[in-house]
Amino acid sequence: MKPRHKKLALITLVVAALGVAVALVLNAFNSNLVFFFSPTQIVNGEAPTSRAFRIGGLVEAGSIKREADGLTTTFVVTDTAKSIPVTYTGILPDLFKEGKGVVAEGRLGSDGRFTATQVLAKHDENYMPPEAAHALEQAAKAQQTIVK
């Protein structure tokens, strides 16, 4: 093969590979990016009901309740300003505790109740999930301007 042809073949190959990769990435980004919303944003109606997203904040003290089946848990996620009730069926991570940070992924029902498919387990007690910390920060700012 002549060098010129080789170069052409190489470029074609690279462009084709890049094209496939870009197409896949765009497609995957479209359907698989998970957005994050704080309880305040959800109460304000900013969160979609049509797709899954993440919610973060603190587990409100005294809000964890277990259904009779032992596996379904309901609790309230709060960013200290607004709260959203959450339902989850399954075993919760070790670090899931009242008053601690939590991030849950799932969908928002039309009744305003969030049904989680996943409650995120994190590796470290001292580590606040960044989304949860972000929600609290936002709420802290908002609270000081809105409440009272």
Binding site: L24, N27, A28, F29, S31, N32, L33, V34, F35, F36, R54, E105, P130, E131, H134
Partner: peptide, 11 residues
């Protein structure tokens, strides 16, 4: 804030 989870990577 967004997260890119396993579905993206698998896809």
């Amino acid at each position: 804030k967004i997260s890119v989870g396993p579905p993206y990577f698998n896809a």
